[in-house]
Design a protein around this nucleic acid. Structure first.
Length: 437
DNA sequence: TGCTCCCGCCAACGC
DNA sequence: GCGTTGGCGGGAGCA
């Protein structure tokens, strides 16, 4: 594949760049490709240059991307770009914003994905864009390139679906597909008709922790271990184990004040337990009862949850579809199954663009089977010890919140806010006195 | 041939 | 009524 971008170290010596073709460079190319302007350079013609020619200010080629390290100006730009995420993003947008119809190969820099090779041929303008060029995954990459991964929390980035659809040269329907999946991971949230707010991956780990907690609660992990077994059981709380995060070991119940705190802690945990049941009922509303329950958003959350509770973190679409069909208690007709799988492909494409999963193959009795492997963060589900310090610092209310958080019971940001607000109202601690056990 | 998934119809939803 | 949202499945591209 053509090397399309340079690593920083090459800025020190442009000539060495042309001589190198090792894996490290490839890796840098890949990492940088997400942040810098993807470029397609005529590598072969450049290799033909001799040493003297390299030192001559090169003529500006029509197709040469502005970051081409052969020109001093471009070198400067690249240096600035490397130092400034904003500039990198802007450069990225310049390329990605081109309508799909004119798109040829800019995203082919990503050698790790399956969009590779979508750019072959020189007379792309004559051709109808290929299926790959119009894929949801590629579209999602373009969408993601519009916004920073980790925006400053003080900055609100609004997304107008109409504008995005126009900019990316696609129908709004396709943007809905992407936005729904992003919304499931809280990378965006809907604020009004046609209007979303971009959060980026700021809350991603938190969201994953919630989903992981939910997955454990819903016993998805048991189904992942026994794929041949029947589908998800309705959440039964009668035999629910004690809360995993209820580690009270750090609390000294023997001393006077701490003893009172300890009792309050138990009250809180009891509340939390019953509250978590209520939240489960809210979040996991059982059989698909309406349009909303079947939405791509929910399906995406459940799909991600399956990865999070899976030991191998590898799931075939087949298995995921089966679990999800069982869960919604649809009759597992072939048609329903196919539809579910289609949607999972959509979701998987977006998750792949987010680098949260990647496509792999698993060996089965009847040969290889396509599957997806989780490649996203894995160190998201440890809250042990955390809530005890919270307890000491902020009292039981805040601790309760952290506990629920650890259980995956605070599914929505607005709920965090509401919860925090309502629980901090004067007199709120009285709530604990209303609970007897 | 089976897998993958784009595309757009059309119904639910909400103002 | 009309614009928005999104479920759904036909069918075409691709390996």
């Amino acid at each position: 594949m053509d090397v399309t971008c340079v690593a920083l170290r090459h800025l020190m010596s442009p000539r060495s760049r042309m001589d190198t073709d090792d894996e490290e460079e490839e890796e840098n190319v890949y990492m940088e490709a997400k942040r810098t302007t993807p470029q397609k350079c005529d590598q072969t013609s450049r290799k033909d240059l001799n040493a003297d020619q390299v030192h001559i200010t090169p003529s500006k080629l029509q197709d040469r991307a502005c970051g081409d390290p052969l020109t001093p100006t471009a070198n400067l730009k690249m240096l600035i770009s490397a130092a400034s995420p904003d500039i990198r993003d802007r450069e990225m947008r310049k390329v990605l914003f081109r309508p799909i119809e004119n798109e040829s190969d800019d995203l082919a820099v990503d050698e790790h994905d399956e969009f590779d090779g979508a750019d072959e041929g020189t007379d792309e303008f004559e051709k109808k864009p290929s299926r790959k060029q119009k894929s949801l995954g590629l579209l999602c990459k373009k969408f993601l390139a519009l916004y920073p991964n980790y925006p400053a929390s003080s900055k609100t980035i609004s997304i107008s679906l109409d504008e995005v659809a126009t900019n990316l040269g696609v129908e709004r329907r396709r943007i809905y597909d992407i936005v729904n999946v992003l919304e499931s991971l809280k990378l965006v949230s809907r604020v009004a008709k046609n209007q979303y707010v971009w959060h980026g991956q700021r809350q991603l780990r938190h969201t994953l922790r919630e989903l992981h907690g939910l997955g454990r609660k819903l016993r998805y992990h048991l189904q992942m271990e026994q794929p041949g077994e029947c589908g998800p059981r309705a959440p039964s709380h009668a035999d629910e184990p004690a809360p995993e995060h209820g580690d009270t070991g750090d609390v000294d119940a023997s001393s006077g004040e701490d003893g009172v705190q300890y009792k309050n802690l138990l009250v809180c945990l009891t509340m939390a337990y019953y509250f978590s049941i209520l939240m489960l009922l809210h979040f996991h509303s059982g059989p698909a009862s309406g349009r909303k329950d079947k939405s791509l958003r929910i399906m995406s959350q459940k799909f991600v949850t399956l990865f999070l509770v899976s030991k191998t973190q590898t799931i075939t679409l087949d298995l995921a579809a089966k679990i999800l069909i069982e869960e919604s208690q649809d009759m597992a007709s072939h048609s329903k199954y196919k539809t579910k799988v289609r949607r999972l492909y959509d979701i998987a494409n977006v998750l792949t663009s987010l680098n949260l999963i990647k496509k792999v193959h698993v060996r089965e009795e009847r040969g290889r089977k396509p599957a997806f492997k989780w490649t996203g963060p894995v160190d998201f589900h440890s809250t042990s010890g955390k809530w005890c310090s919270w307890f000491k610092r902020n009292g039981q209310i805040e601790m309760l919140r952290v506990y629920l958080d650890g259980m995956g019971m605070l599914p929505f940001p607005e709920f965090h806010a509401d919860f925090g607000q309502s629980m901090s109202q004067p007199g709120c601690p009285r709530l604990t006195r209303h609970v007897s056990f």
